[in-house]
Design a binder for these strands. Structure first.
Lengths: 338, 338
DNA sequence: AATTAGCACTCGAACCATTCGAGTGCCAAC
DNA sequence: GTTGGCACTCGAATGGTTCGAGTGCTAATT
């Protein structure tokens, strides 16, 4: 009862179940495949695999299906496989004519959902610290203003502040001029000091603090983290693997960005180039029957942000992993050029 | 056989079917409700309603369910009903502390999906034409640049252009200076003339056209129309009204923004304060079993953009319409202040 | 003329019993 | 360690039966 063949049997069970979504029996395995042994032998191996908790049978007279642990073992012993060439070309053409960062992210997430036929998730690139290039102050109504910060690495951040009362035009203009003088060219660290002094000046306007904060925040890399997703329809299609009730919970979890972000962060901490969470490993009730394949991406090879694909535990792991890896790589390159 | 009672019967059938999602029979109607007549009378009315194509029976020994035409009639004879007070308060608190336009839209769509328990859709406010306040040119890599346009009404638009080759710094600076001189303060009409002249200058750089186009586009009101949606999970829950297959098609249609935008535009053309498309009226295969309730919103009472809720034809029309109307009204107010 | 009671009729849902077969576990033989 | 053989299990599929909600129609009633 060779260790290696048992792994091959598990492998075959996973592949069979993934492609047919039916439990697979010993007879079918013996007939179909590369394992040149009889069904009886396979049955023995199956018994052992079941003993180890890697496979299970839904009921007595049915075939076997992989457990979470079974998928885990399968994934862990998977050799990295490459994406097919036509797909590679698709990635390139799809991403190459994006016009801005938003567009890049949106195209990526759609692309990934199409390649994997799963739900794709892309976290907005976390922004790097960088110097301020220009600050623009625009009045809105009587007591609010828009602060637009253009950073040296070509990001544009905007936020609204309250002026807390009437402000004469000339005062507004003065502040606009001064905030530029005090911040242009400075990186966040220097910025903080420079603006602290400016805010503290005698006879400074009350809302100077708000402006300074907005500028510093923008320079630090912007506001909150966000994720976008696409391909929710693929969940519903997933080979009748889900009831519509379960789909609801999963969609809820997806829209609950916080959950997803926490999960992605945890996966990032694993420190491999590509991370997989299977079923209950997601530690989330609603995602107990789904798996996530995620990879980091970012400029210059440091994976500062994450993207991934989410689907039923019964998913095509090799294909999904290849697609996620490929998109992450291309996206890294694009972000680098931006 | 009074006309009025027949309408009341239809009304009762719609309400019964919406709340129980079971076909409703004559006996149940006679027992339950305000129509003080016997089941036999109701049966007669039902026969007439069926003759008119307003109701149908799934099979002989079942009760009746409304047809699309039945819902239509129901909706058309609906008196405007107000939203409950707690909901009104929810809207106010939910929207009042949004920080920027993106935030407003995102909060709105989430709010609407919660109020209606349907999928909510919000189109980004279509931007008005307005003068240019400042143009910022930022280099990115050797042959690309970012054009940031801040308009007088406080929108920020950005787009990336290609420089098509090496460009010396001083030339870059010159163009940046000139584009500001040529566009600041101009409205789109004047802008076009002013910049055409500028582009045509002898010895002008090749990429001047690209810059000018970006600025004009931004002044015209920005790039493409976009819609966001939320509450997809509500689809899956919708009282087991859908099979997961159908959910997939609907989600597809939702992500296919073009379809949705076309539909919303058509509905806007109807010119009522609130528009309803029922089932096949959506003229879309995938949405044949869904209805959409939409209302326009925009600054100063002109409905320049749309928002709405989408759900199964068997939806709570009065409640949904009230929620859509209320959110549209509040959102108009918020946009106005921005 | 409209409403109502009564009744025969229809037809799907639910229930039950039976059959069929895929798949297993185990044992003896190789 | 592998294989053929065989008894056994149990869900899925099939078919027949019952049950009852709901209808349509007709005749009686107001």
């Amino acid at each position: 009862m060779s260790e290696e063949r048992r792994r091959a049997v598990l492998h075959a069970i996973v592949e069979g179940y993934v492609s047919t979504s039916e439990p697979v029996g010993s007879r079918a395995l013996a007939a179909s495949s590369v394992l040149g042994v009889s069904s009886a032998t396979i049955r023995n191996d199956m018994a052992a695999l079941e003993e180890d908790g890697l496979i299970a049978q839904p009921h007595t007279s049915a075939g076997r299906i992989p457990t979470d642990a079974g998928y885990r073992s399968f994934v862990d012993h998977l050799a990295a496989s490459a994406l097919q060439d036509p797909h590679k070309r698709a990635i390139q053409t799809f991403l190459s004519d994006a016009v801005d960062l938003n567009d890049v992210v949106e195209r990526s997430v759609r692309l990934l959902s199409q390649l994997t036929r799963q739900v794709a998730v892309v976290q907005y690139p976390s922004l790097r610290e960088s110097a301020v290039r220009r600050v623009e102050l625009v009045r809105m109504g009587t007591d609010r203003a828009l602060v637009v910060v253009v950073s040296a690495d070509a990001r544009v951040e905007q936020s609204t502040i309250s002026l807390g009362g009437e402000t004469p035009d000339e005062e507004f203009e003065r502040v606009a001029r001064e905030i530029n003088e005090g911040s242009v060219g400075h990186t966040p660290a220097a910025l903080q000091r420079s603006l602290d002094g400016w805010v503290a000046r005698p006879s400074q306007v009350a809302w100077a603090r708000a402006v300074a904060d907005a500028v510093v925040t923008a320079a630090r890399g912007g506001t909150v983290e966000r994720v976008v997703f696409a391909g929710a329809a693929n969940l519903a299609r997933a080979g009748a693997g889900f009831e519509s009730d379960a789909i609801g919970s999963v969609l809820d979890a997806l829209e609950e960005q916080v959950v997803l972000l926490r999960l992605l962060h945890e996966m990032a901490a694993d420190g491999q180039d590509i991370a997989v969470r299977i079923g209950a490993e997601t530690k989330n009730e609603a995602l107990a029957r789904t798996s996530i394949v995620a990879a980091g991406y970012g400029p210059g090879g440091d994976a500062t942000s994450l993207l991934g694909a989410l689907g039923p535990t019964r998913m095509d792991y090799p294909g999904t992993m290849a697609a996620v890896r490929a998109v992450a790589r291309y996206l890294s390159r694009v972000v680098e050029n931006e």
